[in-house]
Each structure stands twice: as structure tokens, then as C-alpha cells.
Write a protein that binds this DNA or RNA. Structure first.
Lengths: 233, 233
DNA sequence: ATGGGACATATTTTCGAAAATAGTTAGAAT
DNA sequence: ATTCTAACTATTTTCGAAAATATGTCCCAT
């Protein structure tokens, strides 16, 4: 628990519950709320300034996304991190993201190309400005997320896209965890540029291979550097 | 709205909310609650005998599963059925189910084989007893669900399995819709048996082809027979 | 007739109290 | 000392009232 706000009013979403879910999601992904930490209503009410009911609705949303687990009659807790879960997650991510990538490359129009190019450009600029510790930079994280989102944004599969997004959040939590223990961030600049070029160049097979190994390598690195804090699978 | 119960107590799950979600899910999948029907709290409270809050939590769960859509500040409604959604759903289902099938065949142990064989046996028996209209038989539906669940049950991918399950529900709603208008059910007995034999015989490629065409053909049939009641994509 | 604004109604969203359930401590019997 | 039970405390779960928001209606000016 970090903030000590007493009364919260809406900021992002239109309902308070979705707003709280948004803020909770962020605290979980950034590990301000630690894995396995139990989410007691009294404490949550204090820091988020919402009532039981509203919090409960927000937590229900996060359970569906896999960031929170509910033990019926015994409350909620932040989803544990395990090697097993990381492998499961990585497998699902590769399966879905590769499919979305291929379809995006097939269907992408001019606007899609522009989204991909401009989001990569923004990412590169941020890396230039803060070359050392960009991976723990929230601005970089947002840009990184947007670049990957842009790549698959032309796939036209709302169902798989929604699944992809919640998997991305789960994976980002693991990345944040490993960033705490990793000496220096891996150089991803080249990988992202290659990804962009393959996508815009409509080289589907190549782009799919790149995204597959991008996800796999990231996952392997997490497993390597965060091994200490991750419970045994 | 169908039932007129006034006070409801738990039956299935451990919390009332998850129980209500269970019952609501069933009414939506069987189309007792029709696509696009608006889910007003007063009416729901009457037929399910739970309070605003509890219903809201149940609805939140179903939104995550894609059976209900929420329009913020304007309530909930049963998710619409469209050709576009059916295609999207079918694509996602094939992608995920084929992957799970392959991994189940790789990893499945003796217990898995037994689950597959016995669930097929039960399915076949039910079809023998009611050869005509088995597709609208709830007993058959449960057995059918269990057979397909058994096939992928050894995959060891909780994330993809959870996704598969909610996609299965969404697909079943479309099947129920088309069953209302279809003259006679397609003969699936042979398909299911072939699926079982390929799986148990560890012929992964063959089993994956079979499950792919099984899902695709079912979807095509739905599109054909339910075209009238499905909004244009 | 038509468009717009103010009031009234319908509906959703949020709240905090009350009920239900789990967890904990203390005391008695063996 | 140990096990069992009973009472107590902590916590979750459910409820219906109250606040917030959307929708519909009526009246008037143009």
C-alpha cells in the first residue's frame, strides 16, 4: 500500500469502479502492490477512498485479467508470480501475438504503417534522451506498450486483441520485477527497429519470427534475473 | 426474463455473486435471455432475488467473458450476435484449441486417455437414446462440452484453457441460436469418434486438422442456418 | 410544425450499515 | 502438555437506501 488518499473521485474511466481498477492494475503491474500481498478491504478503502462494493467490482475485473486471485470467503490477493506462470503466460503470448502480427501485416493500411512508424520513433527518441535506465522509465514503458500495440492494431480481431492486452499487462509485471535485479537493460533498440521494418515491408514470416524471439528472449531474461524473487514453479 | 423467483440462495458456487453469474451465463448461452436484451437491475433483482451490488459483480464477470456488454452509465445488455463476431470468435477458437490439442496429445497420460474415452462413450450413449433431437438436449450439451474439455485437459496451460472455456460458451450460444432454425442436426458422431482415435493414437497433426475443421464446419453451419437472426456483420 | 430548455421520471452507480463467514484466543477436560 | 470447544475478533459478503446520471415529457418561442 502506498498512497494515503481518503476520498477518490473519477479520473480515467467513466465509472468509479473502472477507474479504481485502472489504478489498482497499475499498482500491481509496477509491483507497488507485491505478488501474493493480500488485498484487505479496510486497507483498500483507506488508500483508494471507495466503498466495499466498488472495490469488489474493480477486483472482479482484475481477477478476470489474471492479476488478482480470489479465494472465496477469504478475500483477494495479488496474483503470485511463479516460473510456471511465466512459462504459461509466455506460451500464450507467443501463440496469440504471432497470429495477430501476421494478420496485421496482411490487412494493415496506410494509417497502420503510420502508427507503427511514429510509435517507434517516439520510443527511439525516449531511449536517446535516457540511454541508461530507460526500462524503468514510465514514459518509455508507455511508448513501448504503444509500439507493440500499434504492430498488431490492424489485425481486426477484437477477441484476441483483448486477450493480448491482458497478457501484456501480466508480462509487464514480470518485466518490472526483473528490472529491479538486472544490472543493465538489454539493448532492444535494434530489435524494435527490425520488427518495424519487417512489418512495414510486409515480410510476414520474418516479422513473426522476430516477435516470437522477442517475447521468448524477454521471458528468458526475466526468468534469469528474477529467479530469486519468483517462487519455484 | 423467465424465472420469477423472489429470494435466491446459493446453489453452485461458494459466493452468491458467482452463483448468480453461473445462472445468468446459462440463461444467456441458451438464449432465454436474448441477444441485445437490456439487463435492467430492477428486473434482474426480481428474477434472481439478489441486490444491486451482487448482480453488478456477476455482470462484471460476464462482461469479461464477452457474454454481456456494459455501456457505462447506461447499464448492461446481453452481447449482440453478429456475423463479424462469429468469425472473430471462430478464428480465436481454432487458434487456441488447436494449440491446446497438440500439447494435450504430447503430454497426456493414462488418466487423460481414460477421460477422453469415457466422455466420448457417454456422449455416444446419449445420442443412441435420443437420435433425433439430441442437439437441443441439455444432457447431450453437457456431455459434448465434457468431451471437448477432456481432449484438451492435459495441455497444462491454465491461461489458454481459461480463454478456451469462455470462447466455448460464446460459441455455444451461437450453436443454440442456429439449432432453433436448423431442420436436422448434423451428424457429429463420426467426427467425435475420429477425433478421439486420432488423439489417443497420438496422431497430433491429424487430430489438429480434425478439430480445426470440426470448429470451422460448425461455425459455417451456424452462419448458414442462423443468418436470419444474426445482425449483419 | 420544429427545436430547445426546464422539469419530472427512470435507471444506474455508490455508499456504509448489517449479516455471514473465517480465524483466533482462552479455558476446561483428559 | 494436548486436544477440543466455545466465545470473541477480524474480515468478507450482501443488502437496500441515497446520490448521481441518463432519459423522457411538456411547454414555449420561433
Amino acid at each position: 500500500m502506498t498512497t494515503t488518499a481518503l476520498k477518490a473521485r473519477k479520473e480515467f474511466g467513466k465509472t468509479l469502479a473502472s477507474d479504481i481498477a485502472h489504478r489498482l492494475r497499475n499498482e500491481i503491474v509496477t509491483c507497488q502492490l507485491k505478488p501474493n500481498e493480500s488485498l484487505k478491504f479496510d486497507a483498500l478503502r483507506l488508500s483508494f477512498g471507495a466503498s466495499f462494493t466498488t472495490l469488489r467490482e474493480a477486483l472482479t475485473l482484475l481477477v478476470a485479467e489474471g492479476l488478482v486471485v480470489a479465494e472465496e470467503q477469504r478475500g483477494y490477493k495479488v496474483a503470485p508470480v511463479t516460473l510456471e506462470d511465466l512459462h504459461d503466460l509466455t506460451h500464450a503470448r507467443i501463440l496469440i501475438e504471432v497470429d495477430l502480427m501476421r494478420r496485421s501485416i496482411e490487412k494493415g493500411d496506410d494509417d497502420w504503417e503510420i502508427r507503427v512508424i511514429s510509435s517507434l520513433h517516439r520510443l527511439a527518441r525516449i531511449e536517446e534522451r535516457a540511454p541508461e535506465d530507460y526500462a524503468s522509465n514510465t514514459e518509455w514503458k508507455a511508448a513501448h506498450r504503444q509500439f507493440h500495440e500499434a504492430l498488431v492494431s490492424a489485425s481486426g480481431s477484437p477477441t484476441l486483441l483483448a486477450m493480448r492486452n491482458s497478457l501484456f499487462d501480466r508480462a509487464e509485471r514480470y518485466r518490472n520485477l526483473s528490472a529491479m535485479f538486472r544490472p543493465h537493460p538489454r539493448d532492444k533498440v535494434g530489435e524494435h527497429r527490425a520488427l518495424m521494418q519487417a512489418a512495414i515491408g510486409r515480410k510476414a514470416d520474418q516479422a513473426c519470427d522476430l516477435i516470437r524471439s522477442h517475447i521468448q528472449t524477454t521471458s528468458d531474461n526475466v526468468a534469469k534475473y528474477a529467479a530469486g524473487v519468483i517462487s519455484a514453479g
